[in-house]
Simulated scan of single mutants.
Amino acid sequence: MKRKILIDYRKEKNLTQKQVADALGISEVYVRKIENGVAHPGRTTMLKFEKLYQKNSNELFPELFQVYIDTKCIND
C-alpha cells in the first residue's frame, strides 16, 4: 500500500526521491521502498522524516500506529 501522504509532502516541497534520500542520509532505493509501503522505517528514520516534513510520525505513517485489539479468546 503506497504511502500517498509521504509522496504528497515530498511533491509539495518540490523534492525528488534522490533529494529526500540525500537530506535524510539514506538511500534513494530505501526512500522509494518506504513511499511504496514495501519497507517500514525505523524510529530514527521516522524522526528524520518528521524533521524534513515538519509533521509527526502518526501523520506520516498512520498505518504503523493503528491499534488492533484482538478480542478473540483461545479455548483450552
Rank of each mutant, 00 (worst) to 15 (best):
F61S: 01
K48M: 02
T71G: 12
L60M: 12
G25R: 09
L15A: 07
K11C: 00
I69S: 03
K11A: 06
D22P: 02
T45H: 04
L47Y: 10
I34S: 04
V31C: 10
T71P: 00
E59D: 10
R10L: 06
H40L: 01
Q54I: 08
T16P: 08
T44M: 06
K11N: 09
N56W: 02
V29C: 02
K4L: 14
L60V: 12
D22C: 07
K55D: 06
N14K: 13
D76G: 08
F61G: 00
C73S: 13
Q66F: 11
N14Q: 12
E63N: 09
Q19T: 08
R3F: 07
R32M: 05
H40F: 04
Q66K: 15
K2A: 01
K4Q: 08
D22Q: 14
G42R: 02
D76H: 14
N75T: 07
I7Q: 12
Y68M: 08
G25Q: 07
G42D: 13
E35I: 05
D22W: 04
E35C: 01
Y53F: 15
I26K: 04
N58F: 14
K51D: 09
Q19P: 08
D76K: 13
E28A: 06
N56Q: 15
L24M: 08
G42N: 15
N36C: 03
L64V: 03
V38E: 08
Y9E: 13
F61Q: 05
G25D: 02
F61K: 07
S57E: 12
D22L: 11
T16K: 09
D8E: 11
I5N: 01
L52A: 07
R43A: 10
P62T: 08
I26C: 10
G25M: 05
D8M: 12
D22H: 04
C73H: 11
K4C: 02
V31W: 00
G25L: 08
S27D: 07
M46Y: 00
V67Q: 09
D22K: 11
I7F: 08
N58S: 11
M1R: 10
I74A: 09
F49I: 02
K55C: 09
N58E: 06
V20M: 05
Y30P: 02
K48N: 05
K55A: 11
N58Q: 09
I74M: 02
Y53L: 12
I34F: 04
I5C: 03
T71N: 12
D76L: 10
I69K: 01
E63H: 14
I69C: 05
F61T: 05
N75E: 14
Q66R: 12
V29T: 14
K33I: 01
K51S: 11
K33F: 04
T45M: 00
P62K: 14
E50F: 02
K55E: 11
K33Y: 11
D22I: 05
I7D: 06
A21V: 06
T16Y: 13
T44I: 15
E12D: 15
K72E: 12
Y30S: 03
Q54N: 15
Y9L: 06
E59W: 10
I5L: 14
K2I: 13
